[in-house]
């Protein structure tokens, strides 16, 4: 049998070192903060105040600038969580479990925001806050999945085991992501099909599309920022007393 011999690049394994991740994350953090702040501020102000009103929906469509990024992120975060969990299981990296753990709360928040803004948007356009439509139902299931992952993660006190258990559940739960993504195409839903894509030509005028692009990108940076911050905080907790940390400039106070 042929020898199965391939290697991941070195930076991949370096990511598994708490010290390396802590320092690298510390370098990225200010840039992520800046990018998230600028993109979200510009996108929101542009979208909410200056973009032209929709010819059918009037001003109510502006909730899109909150709803769409939250909905996209709710799925991306779940996928990231599952991928981080799989990396943790395959390469036995503690950092990956920490990253997966950091994803849970922010992902659940995005899902909740997507559902609430969707309900608020649904009232003027569909005449109902909630309908049992495939897209809405599968997003609700996503929220329940986040709740399950969160409950499991907190029920097991041993960090390492909690990380592995969460990873398995997250990987199994990923089955829901394609269902959400394609629910608007597979079933005849009240929810409109996707009108936002990075690769296809936008179906709306650029004055409406560009602010949306900014808020989506900004949300990704916000997600990255939250994950970096929370993972670094977990490194501080678990590595408490480690010599590299005690000598680190963040701890010892040396300039």
């Amino acid at each position: 049998m042929a020898q199965f011999n391939w290697r991941m690049p070195r930076w991949f394994h370096q990511m598994g070192s708490p010290k390396w991740f802590y320092n690298f994350g510390g370098l990225l953090q200010p840039w992520f903060t800046l990018a998230a702040f600028l993109l979200l501020t510009c996108g929101m102000v542009w979208g909410l105040a200056f973009a032209p009103a929709d010819y059918q929906q009037g001003n109510s469509f502006r909730i899109m600038y909150v709803h769409v990024p939250a909905a996209i992120l709710s799925q991306s975060v779940f996928l990231s969580m599952a991928i981080a969990g799989a990396i943790g299981l395959i390469w036995k990296m503690k950092i990956a479990f920490m990253v997966a753990r950091s994803c849970i709360a922010i992902g659940a928040t995005f899902t909740l925001i997507a559902l609430v803004t969707g309900a608020i948007w649904g009232k003027p356009t569909w005449g109902a806050y909630w309908v049992w439509d495939a897209r809405l139902t599968s997003t609700l299931v996503l929220l329940f999945l986040y709740a399950g992952v969160m409950a499991l993660n907190q029920a097991i006190s041993e960090r390492q085991i909690a990380g592995k258990a969460t990873a398995i559940l997250a990987i199994v739960g990923t089955i829901n992501i394609p269902i959400i993504k394609y629910s608007v195409e597979w079933w005849n839903t009240l929810h409109q099909s996707s009108s936002f894509s990075l690769t296809d030509k936008p179906t709306m005028p650029s004055e409406m599309y560009l602010p949306l692009l900014l808020t989506v990108l900004g949300s990704y940076f916000l997600f990255g920022l939250v994950v970096l911050t929370r993972t670094r905080a977990q490194i501080l907790q678990t590595q408490n007393g480690a010599s590299w940390l005690m000598q680190h400039k963040d701890i010892s106070g040396a300039k």
């Binding site: 329940f144 399950g148 499991l152 089955i175």
Partner: peptide, 12 residues
């Protein structure tokens, strides 16, 4: 906890 974890997967 079991109920919380599994019910979402039972939906389909």
């Amino acid at each position: 906890l079991l109920t919380l974890l599994i019910l979402p997967l039972y939906v389909p």
